[in-house]
Design a protein around this nucleic acid. Structure first.
Lengths: 358, 358
DNA sequence: CAACTGCGAAAAATCGATTTACCGTCTACG
DNA sequence: CGTAGACGGTAAATCGATTTTTCGCAGTTG
């Protein structure tokens, strides 16, 4: 019975109209909250909607408008907590405004990024939240400009002359990391990162370097970056340590780098923080339950998502004016992976810091 | 100039038609690959498409068909690697078939799960891949049944009388974990999990228990589960250890539990594997770079996604017949967090296992 | 009493594609 | 020679809403 009813097609606005004894236009108006409908008829419409279980078909509804109530989100990946949370937030915020979010992963490929964008343009999305693979000057942003799309760029981006941007305040956070490390007495620090993501990574690097040198001009800062993927970074790091370099602290400019650093440490039998200190940009849930807990820069995901959506809808609603470039403040979580240099044997392991009991 | 062109609306099929000097219907046929079009006209259409940069509007295209080329994906969360990868895979596979994936997070709420499903039904999606919050008997699955939706259930699910299901072979993997732990001489093992996710968690528990007892009837297996969230689990675990219980190994039936176990270990200053061994269901990237590396059951994400999409499209294309219940094999990665009981002091720390140098 | 003003609602156009129904033309076959 | 198909294509219907236009009917006004 119910099975049978389920098979037949859903009621359309015309079904509601005929049940209520009015025209489809009137039903549409009632549903849109237009007040020029006689209360009696409005009630009949409401009743018919209730009776039939009618719901507006968003696809048909969007058909007639220029900007559809769909927004696109393109992220470099979905596997990390950062982008996972980002998508969750964006989806929730879009939904609140009656929009549907279509999310896609560019899988760290600029070519794919552009293809996805083209597909979203086919859908005539009202707007796009793009977390570009590299930075604001990629082919995807060009495509958006060339096609007059509205959008907001987030994360690996600093500012743009066409689109609003929102990202974590990498430079400030890195400066704080510098204060903490230099404050603990580190005089030889290695910074690792991936250079492709130019804008943000450079900001992190420069923010760190400037602050560290300002506090202690004698501090030595080595930098290792790789172009595209993490494996070359791993190789360079291995080579660096292999040459006998012994920084007392490592600051990784991105999560993947933190993992690489950790795995290199374990290869060599070094322990944090006795043998070497570690701080990573980007926090993850596991970092507080391991031994040692890993110090990290926490990005304000919710604020970034919230601001991105705000700016995006402002533009969708027609706001003019020059693009804004927002930087949201990060939080630096100091944890056990950071200590003072020389407080433990430098190689071959040794006692691990005694954790609090109870 | 280009800016100006960008502002004007995109070409429609009628623009192409008039450029090519044919009717819209002919354009549609050419694009659909119908062969009953004169080659000359087909060429003119192709040229016009090229010239105007025409692309089919998927929304308008879907308008006319009963089943639209959209599929929905509902996951309990996006923050974990597992579901992140799952969404990435599903998106790619949907795209390969010319479908658009709309993903949404139920945020571990059955109420929200049902709402999202209703919204996807509004979109008249061709099918849904649902990873239910709890199991196959929730309100979401009922909704799908009641409304004649086609879909596949994955992950926290074993089998269903209405929908195809695909999940990891929890029982077999857990049995293998049991073999390994018992094989290493563990005689007192604690299993932790969240009971809400009945189907799978129970399978994991029973698979483990059956195998462990079969190998060594004297083995003691304690079980701690919490109903909904992880905090009660943490409290129970704390209480359990506080009572002086000292299992030599912990098997966590889910990722969150692994994190909780690790943080409880660190609270008490216990180290793996000397003080206690740990195996978790569900692998994560960080687990291989920490000290110790955490042993884990790796779920075959790609296979699950691939099978789910295969089954889904089979149904979309009208396949009849009883639902299938697939179980995909897992891989158990033994790592340093597992050792033999009694190989180290049981509390207060102690030397950590020497890692390989170079 | 004719013209005007408004209100509320119906009718029709629109969005952009797909699909059905149908129309000539030409060939083939009984 | 008449009829049946095949062929190539077009006009129109359709999908389900929204929006614009038109219309009928009251009530006012000059």
């Amino acid at each position: 019975m119910a099975q049978h009813e389920a098979q037949q097609r859903r009621p359309s606005i015309h079904d509601v109209a005929s049940h209520a004894g009015v025209s489809a236009a009137t039903v549409s108006k009632v549903l849109a909250g237009v007040t020029t409908v006689k209360p009696e008829n409005a009630q009949r419409v409401v009743d018919a909607v209730e009776l039939l279980g009618y719901r507006v078909d968003p696809l048909a509804s969007d058909m007639r408008r220029a900007k559809r109530r769909i927004i696109g989100a393109i992220m470099p990946e979905f596997e990390s907590e950062f982008f996972g949370q980002m998508v969750t937030e964006l989806e929730g915020l879009a939904e609140e405004r009656g929009y549907t979010l279509v999310a896609a992963s560019s899988r760290e490929s600029e070519a794919r990024e552009k293809e996805i964008l083209a597909r979203m343009h086919d859908w005539r999305v009202a707007g796009v939240v793009l977390a570009p693979v590299r930075n604001e000057h990629g082919p995807a942003a060009d495509f958006m400009k060339a096609n007059g799309m509205t959008g907001v760029l987030i994360d690996r981006v600093l500012s743009d002359d066409a689109f609003d941007t929102v990202s974590a305040d990498s430079a400030a956070a890195s400066a704080e990391v510098a204060r903490m490390l230099v404050g603990k007495g580190h005089k030889h620090i290695l910074v690792i990162g991936l250079a492709e993501q130019a804008a943000t990574v450079r900001a992190r690097l420069e923010g760190f370097r400037a602050q560290a040198l300002a506090l202690d001009p004698s501090v030595r800062i080595d930098v290792i970056t790789a172009e595209v993927s993490v494996e070359p970074l791993r190789a360079s790091l291995r080579d660096y340590f292999g040459r006998g370099e012994r920084p007392t602290a490592v600051y990784s400019l991105l999560l993947k780098g933190t993992l690489v650093a950790l795995s290199e440490f374990r290869r060599r039998g070094w322990h944090c923080p006795n043998d070497i200190s570690l701080v990573g940009f980007d926090d993850a849930e596991w970092m507080q339950v391991t031994w040692p807990a890993i110090a990290a820069v926490v990005q304000p995901v919710r604020r970034i998502a919230g601001e991105a959506i705000n700016l995006l809808f402002r533009r969708i609603e027609g706001a003019e004016g020059p693009p804004t470039a927002r930087l949201e403040p990060c939080q630096v979580l100091m944890r056990e992976s950071v200590g003072s240099p020389g407080s433990g044997p430098h190689s071959g392991g040794g006692d691990r810091q005694q954790p609090p009991l109870s």
